[in-house]
Write a protein that binds this DNA or RNA. Sequence first.
RNA 1: GUGCCUGUGGCUCAAUUGGAUAGAGCAUUGGACUGCGGAUCCAAAGAUUGCCGGUUCAAUUCCGGCCAGGCACGCCA
Length: 548
Amino acid sequence: MSILKTIQKIIEKVLADMGISQSLDFKVEVPPQDDLGDFSTNAAFLCSKILRKSPKVVADEISEKLRQLDTFVRVDNINGFINMFLDHSVYQMTCAGIISNPRNIGKSNIGNGENIQFEFVSPNPTGPLTIAHGRQAVIGDVLCNIFDESGYNVQRELYINDAGQQIEYLSKSVWIRYNELFGIKHELPEDGYHGEYIIDVAKEFKNEYGDKYKDIWNEEVNDFFKEYSLKKMLSMIKQTLKRLGVNFDVYFSEKLLIKEKIVSRILDTLEKSDSTYAKDDAVWFKVSKYIDENDKVLIRSTDNRATYFCDDIAYHYYKYHRGFTKVYDIWGADHQGHIPRMKASMKALGIPDDFFNVILHQFVTLKKGDEVVRMSKRAGNFVTLDDLIEEVGTDATRYFFAMIDPDTPMNFDLELAVKKSSDNPVFYVQYAHARISSILKQAEERKIDFKMFEGLSEVKEKEELLLIKELSLFSNVVAEAAKNRKTNFITTYLEKVSSRFHTFYTKHSILNTDNSQLIQARLNICLATKIILERGLALLGVSAPDKM
RNA sequence: GUGCCUGUGGCUCAAUUGGAUAGAGCAUUGGACUGCGGAUCCAAAGAUUGCCGGUUCAAUUCCGGCCAGGCACGCCA
């Protein structure tokens, strides 16, 4: 059990002894200044209302009881905050605990094996992935890692929008470029795809099929071009995701919804709950029955096909019946207006309110120093996710996207991301890891017989204790990250650990002392730190290099 | 106009979701190695948390009203 949890339990017991029967949501935390105490709690504030006494008086009472326990060497209270100091042995044991169980150190079971799904990236398969997809991919992938670590049964899914109008434009665009290769000019429609990559696909097509489809356009040809272009686009997208280190469990095709007749099923269900009506030759969903918004079309009058909204309802209905208790969709901020009506539709289908969840992220601006790099969908000057990975590497791409709160509009500084100095948080953390690796190797070269768990009773310096205390918080940080769905909790934490380590390293010699037990102790601290850094970086999908 | 997001030292971001003297990094200034990676560390200076009210032991956080920026308000996705 982590130190935090142990203290929590102790305080719970003390409160019970004081006659407080209800469970209070008090916190055990690290005080804002190191010298205030090792850990602190706000329990007195919460009790003061129940006991009808001032926080200060309650804090005195609680502190007095805590002092009687031998867990604490000292208990202070200031302005109602109770600050506790622990015996060094607690940290010595914590360090040993990390080393003895490296694989499970961040794991918890708050998820209790619950089946959940994250759906993200879900592109139109009509072009390369963009920077925004990159942010989404990283947020999604890292959250999956975090939830996985927290005891959830997580599935990663990407939805392929491969049945709509956009695919028609794609196929036509490729066909037109293909014909251009034979000198045959057709007007590329405004709605078509103008990017360079379309020409590449056309060239590949020509290499495979020659002039077989030159200047021939009918339904059959269209289908053929559709299938071909779609395959190319998907393999391009998958390749980019692979470079980014993101792997999906399921690639879900929109076509499957049609094949399985899910759309007609939900239309029936919605009709039964009196949530639809016909008007102007279209079928509408009564959004206004559930929330204060306008009704939306489900089936278009123009071609009798389902709208995006309708497909999305069907898709999420299907997800529900696939057995997930919760799904999380990660969407760009431009889809925010879609959320309330989706929630309304879930309600209409009788799906529990907490099933459908959306994590929104704000947009990304690229910066090179002070200069803003403009992105636009027009061919030529639009920066793809591939371009970004090419420029700064997978590690920096992932770390940077993970370190910014999804709600914050992000400035991605290309110059900073490739810097090899402490300005760059990726390098700062990775450097700490590499430094430790180097020390451990050095110990080996000096023929020091490193023994795990040995010498830990020598641990008593402030910098050692602060470092271990930080390490002890890891499992808690992972759990909080899951609860709050914040990937940046992990990056912030790793930077803190790295900083604590560098401070410890600078102040205390690890290998160059004549106390062999102390050398053992400090090597153990190094190993524990290395384990935590590795585990944390693994959650981010960022490498932990031994050399840089 | 309506809804959502954002506003924190010169810059980029935090703040354990209502807690203590609002924290880091960059930039600025001044320091620290004849030993394990100086790609590091220590310190100084720099903030009326956009503005005004409210709620309470306590507000960057919650509520109301303004101001500024972004996004969305289609039989597009």
